[in-house]
Nucleic acid binder design. Structure first.
Length: 406
DNA sequence: TCTGGGGTCCTAGGACCC
DNA sequence: TCTGGGGTCCTAGGACCC
């Protein structure tokens, strides 16, 4: 028997949570924007969407379309809390759940429909439960695979419920633009277009060989996707918890910066931010990358594989700085970021050198004070407290793997 | 007052080793 | 007096996702 998958996608999640927290906002044209001054709309309420406001627009662009638009700064703590309620509610249906992001999850409901009758009844029941437990609406898609379930959840948004039966998949895909499938973005859609492929129907019936020649490994997946099948090797639902592969922080400056000196202060702050996160999870990093973006949006990275795993702010800063000093900046800098990778979560190990022991104790003291009184209450000289408002979603919100706690 | 921030996966070239 | 070939690690960049 084929697996039956349900995809649950919250409707205008951040905006809906804000409306719930402040009923005066209910039904208003609302946009939630990122941190900082040069920011974009991350979520628009449906009222705002009616004016043409979309995710990814700059705030001025959005306001141009909708004079009365209310713009709120994202408050991830609020969203994480609401998300926890949503996911726990879904988990009460089945442990076979794969949390895809803060507002989305897949459920394997293959063995579940017996108790709920038709798949549609189960979809309806889960929507009711989410609404009654959280006050939030979601859109649900049910199909024989993740690709189609995810597509289905978009077909009747908001507050939708769509079941794609196996026998109907072909007719739905026939005229559907390839870009509607999760995994086919603008670049791939453009390349497919050059081959004369515009719809999923055309993609599914296209000979495999030229697709593989053009796209390599992706070619086989594309062919499957055109026929409504999941890409090969898609992760299995309900697997073990996976750890992050990387931890990063970046900032876009209010105005492009030119002086390398001022950017070093930012590097130190970013080192502290990624360092605190990796220490909180008892991890270490074996690789450090520095990312910078120029005013023209060209983006570069330089990375360094380390001889030893690191987790202390001072060490992260030291290595980032050595990368940064080797960089020749060819213009004003818009964004600066640090990524830790080559992660290991088996603990920070023992401290063989007295010096390391002392530095680690100092770090633990700083971390515990910051834990109690808030980020950057205490920090090495030079960190910039202004970044402190830029809280992030905890790593358990990764777009991959199975959540185990909130 | 064009274009956030945090992620994953894939490719491709070079170094290096056997 | 010719330029094998596989495997692995490292690096930089691109595509895509929410």
């Amino acid at each position: 028997m084929k697996a039956l998958i349900m995809h649950v996608d919250m409707d205008a999640f951040f905006a809906a949570v804000e409306e719930l927290a402040n009923p005066a906002l209910k039904g208003k044209a609302l946009a939630v924007a990122g941190p900082g001054e040069r920011t974009i709309v991350t979520t628009a309420s449906y009222k705002a969407r009616a004016f043409g406001v979309r995710t990814g627009m700059t705030v001025p662009q959005a306001k141009n379309l909708c004079r009365d638009l209310i713009v709120l700064k994202a408050d991830y703590r609020k969203y994480a809390h609401a998300s926890g309620l949503v996911m726990r509610t879904l988990e009460s249906f089945t442990p076979m759940i794969n949390v895809l992001s803060i507002d989305e999850a897949f459920l394997d409901i293959s063995d579940l429909t017996a108790g709920f009758g038709e798949p549609r009844d189960l979809g309806r029941k889960s929507k009711q439960e989410v609404l009654s437990k959280t006050g939030l609406t979601c859109s649900v898609g049910i199909a024989t695979g993740r690709l189609l379930a995810k597509l289905a959840s978009t077909l009747e948004k908001p507050d939708g419920l769509t079941v794609i039966r196996e026998e109907d998949a072909c007719s739905i895909l026939k005229g559907l633009p390839v870009g509607r499938l999760c995994g086919i973005g603008p670049a791939t859609a453009e390349k497919l277009g050059q081959m004369g492929i515009r719809t999923c129907g055309e993609l599914g019936s296209y000979p495999l060989e030229p697709l593989e020649r053009r796209f390599g490994k992706l070619g086989k997946d594309l062919s499957r996707m055109g026929r409504g099948l999941d890409p090969a090797g898609n992760p299995i639902l309900g697997g073990r918890t996976e750890k992050s592969l990387s931890i990063s922080h970046s900032v876009t400056f209010p105005r492009d910066l030119t002086g390398k000196e001022s950017m070093k202060q930012v590097l130190l702050t970013l080192s502290e931010m990624v360092g605190r996160r990796i220490r909180r999870h008892n991890g270490t990093a074996g690789r450090i990358s520095v990312t910078w973006r120029l005013g023209d949006f060209s983006t570069f990275t330089r990375q360094k594989t380390l001889n030893a795993q690191v987790f202390l702010t001072k060490d992260i800063y030291h290595h980032s700085l050595s990368i940064f000093e080797g960089i020749e900046l060819t213009g004003p800098v818009r964004l600066l970021g640090i990524t830790l990778s080559g992660l290991c979560f088996e603990g920070s190990g023992s401290f063989l050198l007295e010096e390391d022991l002392k530095r680690n104790r100092l770090q633990e003291t700083l971390d515990s004070v910051n834990d109690r009184y808030g980020e950057f209450s205490l920090a090495f000289g030079g960190t910039i407290g202004d970044l402190r408002s830029q809280k992030v979603i905890s790593p358990s919100w990764r777009a991959k793997g199975i959540r185990n706690s909130y």
